[in-house]
């Protein structure tokens, strides 16, 4: 079953962050439905809507992303779409 996952990344802006992130996403066979990325006050801020073809353990993805980006100073947040549905859609 298809699932959407929302990725938020905040941290110090450096070269290669998106390349590193998308490398992990490719490993997990995730497609990027949407991406918004900005530099705000020298901070790197990114939102992505990801889609997986089948149900997956988000923790595994998070660990992979954190491992791959350990040379950057980033905070990575992932959450299943149902969380946002619960809070913002009736």
């Amino acid at each position: 079953m298809k699932e959407k996952i929302y990725l938020t990344v905040v941290g110090k802006n450096e070269l290669g962050i998106i390349a590193t992130l998308t490398n992990s996403l490719h490993t997990f066979q995730l497609s990027v439905n949407d991406i918004t990325q900005k530099i705000l006050d020298d901070k790197f801020v990114l939102f992505m809507e990801l889609e997986s073809k089948q149900s997956m353990e988000i923790q595994h993805l998070k660990e992979h992303l954190e491992h791959n980006t350990k040379n950057f100073k980033l905070q990575i947040m992932l959450a299943h779409e149902n969380l946002f549905n619960a809070m913002h859609r009736i």
Binding site: A79, F84, M87, H88
Partner: peptide, 16 residues
Amino acid sequence: MTFQLNEILETISFPY
């Protein structure tokens, strides 16, 4: 994106 950025930010701000 299915959700507005402010909705995503609000959700994330709850725990963080």
